[in-house]
Design a protein around this nucleic acid. Structure first.
Length: 569
RNA sequence: GGUCAGGUAGCUCAGCUGGUUAGAGCGCAGGACUCAUAAUCCUGAGGUCGAGAGUUCAAGUCUCUCUCUGACCA
């Protein structure tokens, strides 16, 4: 048994996440966590909401509530959505918690003690009427290059050039529209990333089992050269900047930049988890001097987060010169696209987690999003593809298999698992098939190749149908009931196996199947070496009931309705 | 603009370090079966592997040029 620490990128607090966010980090992390638990490993799966920063402040102001209240509400919404999707977090924390504040401050202290932090003065746009400094993207004005009148402070949407907000002509606040703007000096803490360049590069050099996407992004940043960057902001909502236990002089109205404290929350959330119950030890997962050396740490994230996980956060970790656990395996995803474009809240394009669950159970979405995970490149979501995957893979191949054999058992064998009959070449074929496919499936999961894992799972389900066609108990039944019993018995054992194989990706369905066929909790595991044992696992004479139809099909009318409602097509 | 990734059957994609007739799922055509959610199983049609040149006994698989698409750029 190994200890496996899993984190998925922290969803930002600002609003319900869409299916692309789900598919690109939390869902595959969950599937992997479930797989590893089923293998019998000690898994800790941690996630949290990322709550600091300007967008949260502004959204709260717009909703006319305090930032704290806004985050409380949004956290609960996201927690509920995650629960609805069956995301098996061991802990779903909050970066606004006190553990994170404390730990972030400690990291900053260590970094400063190690000569990696210094104060620097820079010029920044201050909005007098808003009473605050404005982040670059919240300053708008006329582009000095092309004359576009609504250029943002960081970049002009018209000519695409990168801008410095102080260069904008007639700048105004995007928050209030006020033109009462001043350029003021402001002091910030800078993290001297340049000094860590060599350390980070050699670390990335050694990370040979990261996927290509992650390494190329990391090298991109390293090749361009790590620049020292401000890790504080002129904001109220965030982790206060301390010095010797008190607010740092000159930083009374500043907090740490959200990207500095957010990754720290992986650790802090583990502390939250530990504090929630006696006997839990966070340090054994994160401190190599306290047992974390034998932990295997896997991170899941979308490609937009890769640089922060492979470069920025490691600067913090390594710069502290303390024995923190760093990531071993890293899985990065591309985007799920929506009819060629991106998901967009403002344009009402795409489906969000809460809406999805209003339409169909979580397993439908989970299956589609894993079977079509954006692994190699961006992956399109289409209603037609969704319909086809659900109807074919889930309803026809899996659902119908379970249905046909359990119903047949009930109608012809009084719902009792029969023990009669001799096995023959059909059973040998089946056994051989499973001996090839089960190890293949496990290796896909081990390598976190989720599309292939789903495809192989489906192929095994399909092999069950093929077996029944070969064994054809309904034909044999007419002349030789014992011969038919073999097919029924093997078919029912396949149902149990299929339920287990369903557990990582579609856990609710897996449970439904296993409950119906009476597989005890202790036998629900991914120990798949003994194929002949698997095919004879169910006790002779046990009672079997036919579960309700597992999946209802998605009709064309649904597709039309949803296309209209969600703006696809 | 720079960097990277990718252009393989109607659709979505697999094809490791170059090596027999290029694969899967869906869709399509035909057949089988009837236990089952008109489900399942079998067979088949469909591709000059973006274009051009090169290396090699041999290239989807390596090199160069071109072209198109996408992503990233603190």
């Amino acid at each position: 048994m190994s200890r496996i620490l899993i984190t998925s990128a922290l969803p930002y607090i600002n609003g319900v996440k869409h299916l692309g966010n789900l598919a690109g980090s939390m869902l595959p992390a969950d599937v992997y966590a479930r797989f590893k638990r089923l293998q019998g490993h000690d898994v800790l799966y941690i996630c949290a909401t990322d709550e600091h920063g300007t967008p949260a402040e502004l959204a709260a102001a717009e909703a006319n509530v305090s930032v704290q209240q806004y985050c409380d509400e949004q956290h609960e919404i996201q927690r509920a959505a995650g629960e609805g999707f069956g995301l098996s977090f061991d802990w779903f924390g909050r970066s606004s918690g006190e553990q994170n504040a404390k730990l972030t401050q400690e990291f900053a202290e260590k970094l400063e003690a190690n000569g990696l932090i210094e104060e620097r003065t820079s010029k920044q746009v201050f909005s007098v009427d808003d009473g605050r400094f404005l982040p670059d993207r919240y300053v708008e004005g006329t582009c000095p290059h092309c004359g576009f009148e609504k250029a943002r402070g960081d970049q002009c949407d018209s000519c695409g050039r990168l801008l410095d907000p102080v260069d904008l002509i007639e700048p105004y606040s995007a928050v209030s529209g006020s033109k009462n703007i001043e350029i003021r000096d402001t002091v910030h803490l800078f993290l001297l990333q340049e000094k860590m360049q060599a350390t980070i590069r050699s670390w990335v050099d050694e990370a040979e089992n990261w996927p290509q996407l992650a390494r190329s992004i990391a090298y991109k940043w390293l090749d361009e050269g790590l620049q020292d960057r401000a890790i504080t902001r002129d904001l109220k909502w965030g982790v206060p900047v301390l010095k010797d236990g008190k607010l740092r002089p000159g930083f009374e109205d500043k907090v740490f930049y959200v990207w500095f404290d957010a990754p720290v929350e992986y650790i802090a959330a583990t502390q939250e988890w530990a504090e929630a119950e006696e006997g839990r030890d966070w340090a054994s997962w994160w401190r190599k001097d306290e047992g974390a050396d034998d932990v295997s740490y896997v991170q899941f994230m979308g490609k937009d987060n890769v640089a922060f996980h492979t470069v920025s956060f490691p600067v913090t970790i390594f710069g502290s010169q303390e024995p923190w656990k760093t990531v071993d395996k890293l899985k990065a995803f591309n985007w799920v696209t929506w009819y060629g474009g991106k998901f967009s809240t403002s344009q009402k394009r795409g489906v969000f987690m809460d809406q999805a669950l209003d339409l169909l159970p979580a397993d439908y979405w989970r299956w589609y999003l894993i079977a079509n995970a954006p692994e190699g490149s961006d992956a399109p979501f289409t209603w037609e593809g969704f319909q086809s995957a659900i109807n074919s893979d889930l309803a026809n191949v899996l659902g119908n298999f379970v249905n046909r054999i359990t119903k047949y058992t009930v109608s012809k064998f009084d719902g009792v698992l029969p023990g009669e009959g001799e096995v023959g070449e059909d059973e040998a074929w089946l056994e051989n098939e499973l001996k090839q496919r089960l190890p293949q499936l496990v290796s896909y999961y081990e390598n976190m190749e989720f599309r292939k894992a789903a495809a192989e799972t489906r192929a095994i389900w399909a092999a069950g149908n093929e077996y029944l066609t070969k064994a054809e108990p309904w034909v044999k039944f007419k002349t030789d009931k014992d011969a038919a019993a073999v097919g029924v018995r093997y078919g029912l054992n396949l149902v149990a196996l299929f339920g287990i194989l369903a557990l990582p990706i579609i856990p609710e369905t897996g449970k439904k199947i296993l409950d119906a066929i009476g597989v005890p909790e202790a036998n629900r595991s991914f120990r798949l070496d003994d194929v002949s044992g698997i095919l004879n696992a169910l006790p002779i004479g046990m009672e079997v009931r036919a579960p309700d139809v597992l999946f209802s099909k998605i009709e064309d009318a649904h597709v039309e309705e949803w296309t209209e409602k969600f703006g696809g097509g």
